[in-house]
Protein backbone atom coordinates (compact mmCIF):
# COMPACT_ATOMS: atom_id res chain seq x y z
CA UNK A 1 0.00 0.00 0.00
CA UNK A 2 1.60 3.28 -1.06
CA UNK A 3 0.36 6.80 -1.48
CA UNK A 4 1.09 8.54 -4.72
CA UNK A 5 3.62 11.37 -4.83
CA UNK A 6 0.86 13.96 -5.19
CA UNK A 7 -1.32 12.45 -2.50
CA UNK A 8 -0.66 15.14 0.12
CA UNK A 9 -1.40 17.83 -2.43
CA UNK A 10 -4.63 16.11 -3.42
CA UNK A 11 -5.69 15.95 0.23
CA UNK A 12 -5.00 19.68 0.65
CA UNK A 13 -7.05 20.47 -2.42
CA UNK A 14 -9.84 18.16 -1.26
CA UNK A 15 -9.98 19.82 2.15
CA UNK A 16 -10.01 23.27 0.59
CA UNK A 17 -12.79 22.26 -1.80
CA UNK A 18 -14.90 20.99 1.11
CA UNK A 19 -14.31 24.24 2.97
CA UNK A 20 -15.46 26.30 -0.01
CA UNK A 21 -18.61 24.26 -0.40
CA UNK A 22 -19.32 24.51 3.30
CA UNK A 23 -19.29 28.27 3.08
CA UNK A 24 -21.56 28.09 0.06
CA UNK A 25 -24.02 25.96 1.95
CA UNK A 26 -23.87 28.30 4.95
CA UNK A 27 -24.66 31.22 2.71
CA UNK A 28 -27.65 29.28 1.45
CA UNK A 29 -28.81 28.69 5.01
CA UNK A 30 -28.16 24.94 5.11
CA UNK A 31 -26.36 23.02 7.77
CA UNK A 32 -23.27 20.99 7.07
CA UNK A 33 -21.51 18.04 8.53
CA UNK A 34 -18.65 20.40 9.23
CA UNK A 35 -21.00 23.22 9.98
CA UNK A 36 -19.94 26.07 12.23
CA UNK A 37 -20.59 25.89 15.91
CA UNK A 38 -22.31 28.62 17.79
CA UNK A 39 -19.65 29.26 20.48
CA UNK A 40 -16.40 31.09 19.74
CA UNK A 41 -13.38 28.97 20.71
CA UNK A 42 -10.42 30.91 19.37
CA UNK A 43 -8.36 31.55 16.24
CA UNK A 44 -6.17 29.56 13.97
CA UNK A 45 -4.00 30.57 11.00
CA UNK A 46 -5.77 31.08 7.71
CA UNK A 47 -5.03 28.43 5.06
CA UNK A 48 -5.01 28.98 1.37
CA UNK A 49 -8.33 28.18 -0.21
CA UNK A 50 -10.48 29.05 2.79
CA UNK A 51 -13.31 31.45 2.44
CA UNK A 52 -12.12 34.99 3.17
CA UNK A 53 -15.38 35.69 4.95
CA UNK A 54 -14.14 33.54 7.81
CA UNK A 55 -11.07 35.75 8.18
CA UNK A 56 -11.00 37.80 11.36
CA UNK A 57 -10.41 41.21 9.80
CA UNK A 58 -9.87 42.97 13.11
CA UNK A 59 -7.14 40.60 14.05
CA UNK A 60 -5.65 40.88 10.61
CA UNK A 61 -5.57 44.69 10.98
CA UNK A 62 -3.84 44.44 14.30
CA UNK A 63 -1.37 41.64 13.66
CA UNK A 64 -1.00 41.91 9.92
CA UNK A 65 -1.40 38.09 9.77
CA UNK A 66 -4.50 36.19 8.60
CA UNK A 67 -6.45 34.22 11.21
CA UNK A 68 -9.88 32.62 11.09
CA UNK A 69 -12.36 32.18 13.88
CA UNK A 70 -12.84 28.69 15.32
CA UNK A 71 -16.13 27.78 16.90
CA UNK A 72 -16.38 25.57 19.94
CA UNK A 73 -18.05 22.54 18.38
CA UNK A 74 -15.68 22.11 15.47
CA UNK A 75 -12.69 22.83 17.59
CA UNK A 76 -13.51 20.36 20.23
CA UNK A 77 -14.74 17.51 18.02
CA UNK A 78 -13.24 14.08 18.21
CA UNK A 79 -13.21 12.11 14.99
CA UNK A 80 -12.57 8.41 14.84
CA UNK A 81 -11.93 6.51 11.61
CA UNK A 82 -12.16 2.72 11.73
CA UNK A 83 -10.22 1.10 8.93
CA UNK A 84 -10.71 -2.44 7.72
CA UNK A 85 -7.34 -4.05 7.05
CA UNK A 86 -8.48 -7.67 6.79
CA UNK A 87 -7.20 -9.84 3.95
CA UNK A 88 -10.29 -9.27 1.83
CA UNK A 89 -9.25 -5.61 1.58
CA UNK A 90 -6.36 -6.77 -0.57
CA UNK A 91 -8.75 -7.49 -3.47
CA UNK A 92 -8.26 -5.21 -6.44
CA UNK A 93 -6.58 -3.61 -8.21
CA UNK A 94 -6.72 -0.94 -7.04
CA UNK A 95 -7.02 -2.69 -3.73
CA UNK A 96 -9.75 -1.82 -1.33
CA UNK A 97 -7.11 -1.20 1.34
CA UNK A 98 -5.44 1.37 -0.90
CA UNK A 99 -8.64 3.33 -1.19
CA UNK A 100 -9.53 2.87 2.50
CA UNK A 101 -6.13 4.17 3.59
CA UNK A 102 -6.41 7.13 1.23
CA UNK A 103 -9.82 7.95 2.66
CA UNK A 104 -8.59 7.63 6.24
CA UNK A 105 -5.68 9.95 5.54
CA UNK A 106 -7.93 12.44 3.77
CA UNK A 107 -10.45 12.35 6.64
CA UNK A 108 -7.61 13.03 9.05
CA UNK A 109 -6.51 15.96 6.98
CA UNK A 110 -10.02 17.39 6.81
CA UNK A 111 -10.62 16.83 10.50
CA UNK A 112 -7.37 18.43 11.54
CA UNK A 113 -8.13 21.35 9.28
CA UNK A 114 -11.42 21.79 11.05
CA UNK A 115 -9.71 21.76 14.44
CA UNK A 116 -10.85 18.28 15.38
CA UNK A 117 -8.78 15.63 17.07
CA UNK A 118 -8.60 12.56 14.87
CA UNK A 119 -7.98 8.95 15.78
CA UNK A 120 -7.34 6.33 13.10
CA UNK A 121 -7.99 2.77 14.22
CA UNK A 122 -6.86 -0.18 12.14
CA UNK A 123 -8.75 -3.43 12.51
CA UNK A 124 -6.69 -6.23 14.11
CA UNK A 125 -6.00 -8.00 10.83
CA UNK A 126 -3.60 -10.76 11.74
CA UNK A 127 -2.74 -9.11 15.06
CA UNK A 128 -4.52 -9.71 18.30
CA UNK A 129 -5.49 -6.12 18.91
CA UNK A 130 -6.31 -3.11 16.83
CA UNK A 131 -3.71 -0.42 16.40
CA UNK A 132 -4.49 3.24 16.45
CA UNK A 133 -2.94 6.50 15.35
CA UNK A 134 -3.90 9.68 17.14
CA UNK A 135 -3.54 13.05 15.40
CA UNK A 136 -3.86 16.22 17.44
CA UNK A 137 -2.06 18.69 15.29
CA UNK A 138 -1.52 19.16 11.60
CA UNK A 139 2.08 18.19 12.13
CA UNK A 140 0.98 14.68 13.11
CA UNK A 141 -0.45 14.06 9.67
CA UNK A 142 2.84 13.23 7.94
CA UNK A 143 3.71 10.60 10.51
CA UNK A 144 0.25 9.11 10.15
CA UNK A 145 0.74 8.81 6.39
CA UNK A 146 3.99 6.96 6.95
CA UNK A 147 2.32 4.48 9.28
CA UNK A 148 -0.59 3.92 6.94
CA UNK A 149 1.81 3.15 4.13
CA UNK A 150 3.14 0.21 6.12
CA UNK A 151 -0.24 -1.42 6.53
CA UNK A 152 -0.92 -4.69 4.73
CA UNK A 153 -4.19 -6.50 4.13
CA UNK A 154 -4.07 -9.66 6.22
CA UNK A 155 -5.99 -11.72 8.70
CA UNK A 156 -9.69 -12.24 9.12
CA UNK A 157 -10.60 -9.50 11.59
CA UNK A 158 -12.16 -6.56 9.81
CA UNK A 159 -14.55 -3.77 10.71
CA UNK A 160 -16.85 -6.09 12.64
CA UNK A 161 -14.02 -6.77 15.08
CA UNK A 162 -13.84 -3.03 15.73
CA UNK A 163 -17.51 -2.25 16.09
CA UNK A 164 -18.02 -5.20 18.39
CA UNK A 165 -15.05 -4.50 20.67
CA UNK A 166 -14.06 -0.85 20.40
CA UNK A 167 -15.64 1.98 22.27
CA UNK A 168 -16.73 4.71 19.96
CA UNK A 169 -15.76 7.57 22.23
CA UNK A 170 -16.07 10.34 19.69
CA UNK A 171 -18.38 12.84 18.03
CA UNK A 172 -17.97 11.50 14.53
CA UNK A 173 -17.30 7.90 13.63
CA UNK A 174 -16.26 6.83 10.14
CA UNK A 175 -16.02 3.22 8.99
CA UNK A 176 -14.02 2.48 5.88
CA UNK A 177 -13.95 -1.06 4.53
CA UNK A 178 -15.87 -3.56 2.46
CA UNK A 179 -18.55 -4.14 5.14
CA UNK A 180 -18.78 -7.78 4.11
CA UNK A 181 -17.90 -9.38 7.40
CA UNK A 182 -20.48 -8.48 9.96
CA UNK A 183 -23.98 -7.76 11.08
CA UNK A 184 -25.18 -4.29 10.20
CA UNK A 185 -26.82 -3.89 13.60
CA UNK A 186 -23.43 -4.01 15.28
CA UNK A 187 -22.36 -1.02 13.21
CA UNK A 188 -25.43 1.12 13.45
CA UNK A 189 -25.66 0.73 17.18
CA UNK A 190 -22.91 3.34 17.39
CA UNK A 191 -25.11 5.98 15.82
CA UNK A 192 -26.79 8.47 18.13
CA UNK A 193 -26.24 10.20 21.48
CA UNK A 194 -24.51 13.07 19.76
CA UNK A 195 -22.39 10.81 17.60
CA UNK A 196 -22.71 10.82 13.86
CA UNK A 197 -21.94 7.69 11.88
CA UNK A 198 -20.72 7.46 8.30
CA UNK A 199 -19.73 4.30 6.43
CA UNK A 200 -17.78 4.10 3.21
CA UNK A 201 -18.04 0.71 1.56
CA UNK A 202 -15.37 -0.08 -1.01
CA UNK A 203 -15.69 -2.94 -3.47
CA UNK A 204 -13.28 -3.95 -6.23
CA UNK A 205 -14.45 -3.62 -9.85
CA UNK A 206 -14.59 -7.38 -10.31
CA UNK A 207 -16.75 -7.67 -7.21
CA UNK A 208 -19.22 -5.30 -8.81
CA UNK A 209 -19.06 -6.72 -12.34
CA UNK A 210 -17.46 -10.15 -12.54
CA UNK A 211 -16.16 -11.41 -15.85
CA UNK A 212 -17.68 -14.45 -17.47
CA UNK A 213 -15.53 -17.54 -17.79
CA UNK A 214 -14.18 -20.27 -15.62
CA UNK A 215 -12.52 -19.24 -12.42
CA UNK A 216 -11.56 -20.45 -9.00
CA UNK A 217 -12.85 -17.88 -6.53
CA UNK A 218 -10.79 -17.58 -3.37
CA UNK A 219 -11.71 -16.01 -0.08
CA UNK A 220 -8.48 -14.26 0.99
CA UNK A 221 -9.46 -14.42 4.65
CA UNK A 222 -10.30 -18.11 4.94
CA UNK A 223 -8.51 -19.52 1.90
CA UNK A 224 -11.75 -21.21 0.82
CA UNK A 225 -11.95 -21.93 -2.90
CA UNK A 226 -14.95 -22.20 -5.16
CA UNK A 227 -14.42 -23.46 -8.73
CA UNK A 228 -17.14 -21.95 -10.82
CA UNK A 229 -18.12 -21.40 -14.44
CA UNK A 230 -19.40 -17.85 -14.55
CA UNK A 231 -21.88 -17.26 -17.33
CA UNK A 232 -24.06 -14.28 -18.09
CA UNK A 233 -27.20 -15.53 -16.28
CA UNK A 234 -25.14 -16.28 -13.19
CA UNK A 235 -23.61 -12.82 -13.30
CA UNK A 236 -27.09 -11.33 -13.45
CA UNK A 237 -28.15 -13.29 -10.40
CA UNK A 238 -24.95 -12.31 -8.59
CA UNK A 239 -25.44 -8.64 -9.30
CA UNK A 240 -29.01 -8.83 -8.08
CA UNK A 241 -27.92 -10.52 -4.88
CA UNK A 242 -25.08 -8.06 -4.32
CA UNK A 243 -27.49 -5.20 -4.93
CA UNK A 244 -29.73 -6.56 -2.19
CA UNK A 245 -26.76 -6.70 0.16
CA UNK A 246 -25.76 -3.11 -0.56
CA UNK A 247 -29.34 -1.91 -0.30
CA UNK A 248 -29.48 -3.53 3.12
CA UNK A 249 -26.65 -1.30 4.30
CA UNK A 250 -28.10 1.80 2.69
CA UNK A 251 -31.52 1.16 4.19
CA UNK A 252 -29.99 0.55 7.62
CA UNK A 253 -28.13 3.85 7.40
CA UNK A 254 -31.25 5.70 6.41
CA UNK A 255 -33.19 4.08 9.22
CA UNK A 256 -30.62 5.07 11.81
CA UNK A 257 -29.90 8.54 10.49
CA UNK A 258 -26.38 7.52 9.53
CA UNK A 259 -24.65 7.87 6.24
CA UNK A 260 -23.49 5.12 3.97
CA UNK A 261 -21.83 5.31 0.58
CA UNK A 262 -20.76 2.52 -1.73
CA UNK A 263 -17.94 2.98 -4.22
CA UNK A 264 -15.81 1.00 -6.63
CA UNK A 265 -12.08 1.15 -6.14
CA UNK A 266 -11.94 2.19 -9.78
CA UNK A 267 -13.02 5.62 -8.51
CA UNK A 268 -10.75 8.09 -6.74
CA UNK A 269 -11.04 8.63 -3.00
CA UNK A 270 -12.22 12.22 -3.44
CA UNK A 271 -15.27 11.14 -5.39
CA UNK A 272 -16.21 8.52 -2.84
CA UNK A 273 -15.55 10.59 0.24
CA UNK A 274 -17.19 13.82 -0.78
CA UNK A 275 -20.78 12.53 -0.53
CA UNK A 276 -20.16 11.53 3.08
CA UNK A 277 -18.94 14.97 4.05
CA UNK A 278 -20.97 17.28 1.89
CA UNK A 279 -24.53 15.98 1.96
Amino acid sequence: MRFGPDFAQRCEAFAARLARRRVGREAAGRASVLGPGEEFAGHRPYRAGEDLRRLDWDLYARLDKPFVRVERREAGERWTVWIDRSASMGVGPPTKLQRAAECAAALARVGLGAGARVRLVLSPGADATPSSIVLRRAADWGAALARLQGVRAEGRAGLAALWSRERADCDRLFGVGDFLDGDARGWFVHQGRGRRLAGLQWLAPEEFAPRVGRAVLIDPETGDELPIDVDAPLVTRYERRLGEELDHWRAGAARHGARHHVASTAREFEDALAPLLED
Binding site: A204, E206, R214, A215, L217, D224
Partner: peptide, 26 residues
Protein backbone atom coordinates in the same frame (compact mmCIF):
# COMPACT_ATOMS: atom_id res chain seq x y z
CA UNK B 1 -9.11 -21.55 -14.73
CA UNK B 2 -8.00 -18.16 -13.46
CA UNK B 3 -7.80 -17.68 -9.75
CA UNK B 4 -9.62 -14.69 -8.41
CA UNK B 5 -9.65 -13.35 -4.88
CA UNK B 6 -12.96 -11.87 -3.84
CA UNK B 7 -14.62 -10.60 -0.73
CA UNK B 8 -18.02 -11.76 -1.94
CA UNK B 9 -17.41 -15.50 -1.89
CA UNK B 10 -20.37 -15.91 0.45
CA UNK B 11 -22.69 -14.59 -2.23
CA UNK B 12 -21.23 -16.91 -4.86
CA UNK B 13 -21.70 -19.82 -2.49
CA UNK B 14 -25.34 -18.88 -2.11
CA UNK B 15 -25.74 -19.05 -5.87
CA UNK B 16 -23.60 -22.17 -6.46
CA UNK B 17 -23.11 -23.88 -3.12
CA UNK B 18 -20.88 -26.68 -4.41
CA UNK B 19 -19.18 -24.92 -7.29
CA UNK B 20 -18.56 -26.61 -10.62
CA UNK B 21 -16.91 -29.98 -11.19
CA UNK B 22 -14.31 -28.45 -13.45
CA UNK B 23 -10.97 -30.03 -14.14
CA UNK B 24 -7.74 -28.19 -13.82
CA UNK B 25 -7.08 -27.98 -17.52
CA UNK B 26 -10.25 -28.36 -19.52
Amino acid sequence: PRELATGTLAIWRELRPTGEPVGAAR
